[in-house]
Amino acid sequence: METNGINKYAKYALVVLLSVALILFTQQIKLLKNPDAAPISSMTIWGLLTLWLFSVIGIIISELAKKQPIGFIKNFPVLGWVSITSLVLCLMSDTFVKAISAVDFLSITTPILTFAGISVVDRLADLRKTSWKVAIVAVFVFIGIYVGSATLSQIGLMISGQ
């Protein structure tokens, strides 16, 4: 069931719409649990629509980039394109920043990780194929990259006197 052309974009746009709808739902649940959480205002709705719009623009740019020959641009991830699109448009108008900021940050993350969990269930079986040795190595690899970067950042911040 390969979709192409306009159909493909419509599908992507719908999935992103589903995502922003789930964010709204999450923010509402947060409010039920804690009435002091970030309120849902008309700004929140505008913010969600802005997030949807920026995502769709990013998708279109990413698809166009795939059609041109420069490898680095061709392979640049759609996640990066959306961030750049949003960054540029937010620098152009503060209104976007205000609208998006009305969307609670942590409410965006819960739905994503829900789907991340569902997406990996069939990989759980693959875990058996990985050796326990690589699992131990993974812990050191994860700590290595994080502590490595954090140490360099810390030194940098100290040098710059921040």
Binding site: W52, F54, V78, L79, V88, L91, V97, I100, I112
Partner: peptide
Amino acid sequence: NVTFASKYLIFIMLPLMARYGADVAPKL
């Protein structure tokens, strides 16, 4: 459903990436 989740996870993440633009812009 599992295929849907893994195939479209990236698209479900996009609003988060769009949110990051708004977080970086004022601090650029």
